[in-house]
Simulated scan of single mutants.
Amino acid sequence: MLGLLSAALVTVSATAMGPEPTLPVYDPRASTIVARGLDNPRGLAFGARGELYVAEAGRGGDGECRRGADGGRICAGRSGAITVVDFGHQWRVVSQLRSEASPAGTDASGPADVAVDDDGELIYTDGAGLHRGPARLSGVGSGFAVLPGGRGYLVVDPAGNALRAVTARGRVRTVATFPVREVAFPAGIPDGPPPGSRFPMESRPSSVAVGPDGAWYVGERTGFPSPVGAARIWRVVPGRAPEVWATGFTRIADLAWSTRGDLFVLEAGQAGRSASSAKNVLSRKAGRAGLARQAGELVGVSWGERSVS
């Protein structure tokens, strides 16, 4: 059974570098707690004033139950929410959203991503589709990361290892695809191949954010076996092949650039399989780069030697 999310919010920064820059790599040392008590955090986005919104999948509830994929119970409730973090405070601006989870709060599904459109309206995705404020827009983007822009949306397609563009009328085109690669199979996974043996792993992109340079940055959640530190951030420019921009993460859940040019990265660990912890942490990778891991927290970190200009 999947464990609780481990949320780490990180910051990455950018200055022009030579033709062969050193990729920023996760460094767990310095970090600052930004928010606590997040309930299975998923996507995040900044508003026009620099406030940070976080989608929380919730912990299900005492409503109708069904059998989960592993045979355990998955029960529905209204514990999903959208939280805002601003001026050192946090509060839920939207609550009572549908959520499903095990009685322990694991295997949670509910609000998956959040964004703010040009009119200041909150847009979020969940299992029912895409919502703008209280209204459901469509089933497109159900459960996936969505980035509004222009006359439509960018939608992350984990199953297809792709980034898609969707128009307001529902037309879809592929912007980029992300390759399958071989990784060393980690130790500690029952009934798996010998530790260290090569194993194909899908990218499973999970998140997208537009950077200050106008490029799109895509985070990987990674497919099985998801070894610690294997997730990457890709930089995507239309008409060009995507390039790896940063490495060293574990199961990235979401990305967001702040108005100051800092990239925030939400990590999601998977307990009992191959991730490093079963905690909820958000950390921040400041203007240059950074990260952290602790339970149910939003963290700010300053690291790095890379900038986007």
Rank of each mutant, 00 (worst) to 15 (best):
F185Q: 13
H89D: 15
D157T: 02
R293A: 07
R36E: 15
G50T: 07
V93G: 11
A162Q: 06
V12L: 13
T15N: 11
D117C: 00
L2D: 14
H131Q: 05
T177G: 06
A256L: 12
C75Q: 04
L298I: 09
A101Q: 02
W234P: 00
L4E: 12
A231N: 04
G296V: 08
G18F: 00
A108N: 11
L44T: 04
Y217N: 01
W234R: 00
G60A: 06
Q270N: 04
G272F: 05
A159F: 06
G68E: 03
E64Q: 12
V218K: 03
G150M: 01
L291H: 08
L9H: 11
G160L: 08
P195N: 12
I252E: 02
A35E: 10
T11R: 15
K285A: 07
A286R: 13
D70A: 08
A69C: 04
F87Q: 09
I82W: 14
G63W: 06
V146T: 08
F249S: 00
G47D: 14
R173G: 01
Q96I: 02
R136W: 05
D62W: 03
G223Y: 08
I33T: 14
T106L: 07
G71W: 02
A112E: 05
Y124P: 02
A35N: 06
P111C: 04
E100V: 02
S302Q: 13
E56A: 05
G133D: 02
D39E: 10
P212A: 06
D213K: 01
P190S: 15
A278R: 08
S226I: 10
S226H: 10
G88F: 15
C75K: 03
A76W: 05
G139E: 10
D262C: 05
D254Q: 01
L97P: 00
